[in-house]
């Protein structure tokens, strides 16, 4: 299929993918920075440090921070690869990797919800993966064939 036949929706999905990829990378970077920062703060040294340490323990501990960083990094890589796949209308890089991103993201958010953290922001988070899953496998499945 030629480049000119690419639907505008696929181009839009690719651009949105790149934007979300940047957000995921920032999120991963923020989590790593936080984990390193907390590690450097000696226990009992300052009240702010202790408060932050307590807040992180309440939110699931350091393991959760590292898991979030890893999940965000993986999602960022998948978003980037899928975005390139959409532009080139590739079956594997576009449809398969894009679907893998959507399923992984949904699994991550549902796991997050399963640990008692189901709040309204989660609904906003699942909009894009759910939309991606539907669009790739219903609307654009015949366009990602290269």
């Amino acid at each position: 299929m030629s480049e000119a036949k690419r639907p505008g929706g696929l181009t839009a999905l690719a651009v949105i993918n790149f934007i979300f990829c940047a957000f995921e990378l920032l999120s991963a970077l923020g989590a790593v920075f936080l984990a390193v920062f907390i590690d450097k703060v000696d226990e009992g040294s300052t009240e702010d440090g202790n408060n932050m340490r307590q807040a992180i323990e309440d939110a699931g501990g350091m393991e959760w921070i590292w898991a979030s960083a890893a999940a965000s990094s993986i999602l960022a890589v998948l978003l980037l690869m899928a975005g390139i796949g959409y532009l080139q209308q590739k079956r594997f890089l576009g449809r398969t990797v894009g679907t893998a991103y959507a399923l992984l993201a949904l699994a991550f958010y549902f796991t997050y919800a399963g640990f008692g953290r189901f709040d309204f922001s989660l609904l906003i988070d699942i909009v894009y993966p759910a939309l991606t899953l539907l669009m790739l496998n219903l609307m654009f499945k015949d366009d990602l064939v290269n």
Partner: peptide, 19 residues
């Protein structure tokens, strides 16, 4: 839905409304 504008419109309507 196949056009970029339609897709962005759906995404923006949902994200803005939910926000």
């Amino acid at each position: 839905l196949r056009t970029g504008g339609g897709l962005v419109a759906v995404l923006l309507a949902l994200v803005t409304g939910l926000t």
